[in-house]
Computed example of a mutant assay.
Amino acid sequence: MRNSVFITLIISICVCSCTTPIDTVLTSEHPAIQKVMDSLDTYEVQILYTQIDTTSKGLVKFKDYAFQENQKTYFYPASTVKLPIALLASEYVTAHPELDLDTPYISKRDSVLHSVADDMRQIFAVSDNEAYNRLYDLLGRDAINTRLKALGLAPTRISHRLSTSNADAAERATIKFFPSYEGDVVTIENQTDGPIADVKAKHQQKGTGYFKDGNLMQTPFDFSKKNYFPLQAQHELMKRFFFEDQFDADERFAISYTDKIRIQKMMHTLPRKAKYDPETYYDSYGKFFLYGDSKDPIPEHIKIYNKVGYAYGTLTETAYVVDEKAGIHFLLSATILVNKNGIFNDDTYEYDTVGIPFLAQLGREIYALEKGRKQ
């Protein structure tokens, strides 16, 4: 009897020692969490959560937790790829003294004057695809992927534009910058990228079928040439951008302090504050954690610096969440696939009934955990 009690105690200790805060959160009785956990294999959930503390010497200390995160398991990143492209575009203008974020330019994609700053505003406020496509053409996938690898964010592979024909074309549109009103022009033209590099990831073939040109193809959908931005890379990018002092110089974005603060402000600015119609672009339009299942205004003291993505039934968000009033801040990244029928391109996905409610409640549960840590 004594030995069996001892063994039971040892087993209990082992189980408790393996339980993470994410595991605890996912035992929530909230229906949005339970629905996903009851059929976990269906949803391809991955979660990363970082607690952020400050030591007695004023140093930042990270404590990372993961749930089913595996950079070798593919998920479609959708618009989350706009985040690194925005930051690399800022690096581009930093590296060219004759340019800045507000320098006007014209892309051959259209005939309208733009600026990198305005493209960023559109990307973070309403996730504009054409703004991303212009910056993609400015940088090129070869330079994008080389730079992300140098920053330690491999195995990310950016391979194509979004929601446009010939999205993966190697040829890029000519761009002309106008640094002054005295006729100076900086032209970037005749740029061609190399072929799309392969990535080593599992589950790049998904589902049982997909629609193409109105016809149902009864074979898995092939994501092997699509953008690839693993959750770990997204999470690490956020760390580098908001806590650059924790990294070596070669792992930091080469962005001026002024531009960095400006970009961070864009990341948390709500659509209505960026002059978009609040009826169409409500506060949580691009913010799933905590508020995604509500159209109510987000409180002023809550700042969510983030980027979401949703396409092909996959919802993803990477965020730095700050409650200025309660002194709470944490990093959270998660992805979930909601495609019950296994058919892609049929616009039948459970975004509003399963995916967004799950991510919203996940954010609230993590926030409640953080609030408990502060008390």
Rank of each mutant, 00 (worst) to 15 (best):
L83D: 11
P278K: 12
A143E: 13
P195D: 13
V186K: 12
T258V: 02
F229R: 04
A78H: 12
D38R: 12
I47R: 02
A201P: 11
A233R: 01
F288T: 04
F221D: 10
E189C: 06
A197M: 07
I175L: 13
S180L: 01
T335S: 14
A150T: 11
G355H: 06
P195Y: 04
N190G: 03
T146D: 14
N341V: 00
K303I: 01
T8A: 14
T316R: 01
K202F: 06
Y132N: 11
D53R: 12
R134L: 08
T164K: 03
N190K: 15
Y65G: 03
A170K: 13
D283N: 03
I85Y: 03
A117H: 14
D346I: 09
E171P: 00
F241H: 02
Y305F: 13
A368V: 03
N215S: 03
E279F: 09
L332F: 00
I175D: 06
R2C: 02
G207C: 07
V36L: 03
C18Q: 12
T50R: 07
A334V: 08
L216D: 04
F247C: 14
K307M: 14
G286T: 14
T94K: 04
K200S: 14
L48G: 06
P220S: 11
R240T: 08
E91N: 03
Q375S: 14
Y257G: 01
R272G: 01
S333N: 01
D23Q: 04
N306Y: 00
P220W: 08
K200A: 14
Y281C: 06
P357V: 10
H268D: 08
A143N: 10
L148K: 04
V308G: 04
Y132T: 07
D53G: 12
M217V: 15
Y281E: 09
S39T: 12
N227C: 11
I356W: 04
K212F: 10
I52L: 13
N129I: 05
Q122T: 05
P195V: 10
T187H: 02
I175A: 08
G363M: 04
I356T: 14
T19P: 01
A334Y: 04
L270W: 00
D198P: 07
V5P: 00
D213A: 08
V60Y: 06
Y132E: 08
I13S: 01
A167C: 06
R141P: 00
K239E: 14
P220V: 10
N3H: 11
P297C: 03
V15N: 00
S90V: 09
M238F: 15
K57A: 15
L315I: 07
N215K: 12
S107W: 11
E244K: 15
L270E: 03
V322Q: 10
I302C: 00
E317V: 09
V25H: 00
F229H: 11
I144V: 09
